[in-house]
Design a protein around this nucleic acid. Sequence first.
DNA 1: TCATTACTATGCGTATTCTAGTTGTTGAAG
DNA 2: CTTCAACAACTAGAATACGCATAGTAATGA
Lengths: 224, 224
Amino acid sequence: MRILVVEDEPKVASFIRRALEEESYAVDVCADGAGGLDWAQTVNYDLIVLDLMLPGLPGVEVLKRARAAGVKTPVMILTARSEVDQRVKGLDAGADDYLTKPFAIEELLARARALLRRSGGAPSGILQVDDVVLNPVTREVTCGEQRLEFTTKEYALLEYLMRNAGRVLTRSMIAEHVWDLDFDTFTNVIDVYISYLRNKIDKGRERSLIQTIRGSGYMMRSDG
Amino acid sequence: MRILVVEDEPKVASFIRRALEEESYAVDVCADGAGGLDWAQTVNYDLIVLDLMLPGLPGVEVLKRARAAGVKTPVMILTARSEVDQRVKGLDAGADDYLTKPFAIEELLARARALLRRSGGAPSGILQVDDVVLNPVTREVTCGEQRLEFTTKEYALLEYLMRNAGRVLTRSMIAEHVWDLDFDTFTNVIDVYISYLRNKIDKGRERSLIQTIRGSGYMMRSDG
DNA sequence: TCATTACTATGCGTATTCTAGTTGTTGAAG
DNA sequence: CTTCAACAACTAGAATACGCATAGTAATGA
């Protein structure tokens, strides 16, 4: 899951970045409105966290223009407690949720999960394919009775695949949502990590849960 | 443990804050009702201490609205001795305990502990993981037969870990709960304190009670 | 002033991430 | 039915990032 954070205060920005990265999201940070708008239109993010108090282009304007340009990504806005009118304007401009500063980081994480869940379609938040069950809140994955361990990247990839079970994901889509911005196209990391995942989740299975779509990419089997 | 104090008299407020901080709680203070309501809804506190005599929005109203908004946090109200009717209204509006001014700070601390214990789920209030037993009331920690000594920070960290045994706590969460909010990202205090704790509670144990979740944070093993 | 506590800095070992080369598969053309 | 090219899978090991321990410095407070 890839998240854009538009926030000019370096401390707040790096605090948010770190917390999100600890939850194994891929995070991009942008310190000004114009740049944020640019990124939002270029990269297909899963969530945008937008501070409304920004130098240069105001946050509300960023949001309006992004929506006008057809960006459908859920947006969470950050405002100071006093700026009630800003918050209202933000929600009117198409924000999906808001958070007032200062906030507890767990609050932000919980709301981010809620927004991602809402857009991803899974009502409970728990993802399941065959006997593999993934809980995004605890980051726990089980296969039948057995608890499985994953590294950060493995987990991020698995979650992305499971959220999009039944859909074909090209390598560039995977790169965009799971890896970093400066992603080298001529590498085979994705293949390698698919292989790692298969080693862990396909034990004693005759047909892999992750299907290879030759020439395109991969697809996680969906139930039924 | 995070506590919100809504109190307009600066002297009283800072007095309470200091006392609670000495007990290694993280404390936020707010001087007016509207702000307090906002905080209570934004941050997931473990306890709210609410003075009923407030400028602007009255305390009882703050409490009513917070409860209406779904805030489940235990609330302790403060009233003057004469304001019997206020106290009754407060309890009706969903307060869990009350204290009349002037009060001994020890009294406040004891009642706060009681409320935290009650909401913490563990019936006795005593936290136990394997043979490590922590009593939040007396702040005593034993490992088997042996009594263990901790510094304030060590204790605060241990209690936070034990209260959340079985859950992954990221460094950001730990920073927020045990240290204070705007946390310097480039430090390794948490790692160092985890190491201190392990030195004390893992003596002669083959597998540490505190598991490292690489890339995220730590988790205290839960029994079973 | 001294002792205790809180934090910082650094180097080292290891898990993770990634690269690159080899082997294996697939499917279309001959 | 072969052959071949394109693609994917696997493997080993290099590079990197991360956590841990240790020791040293700063802050606190009796």
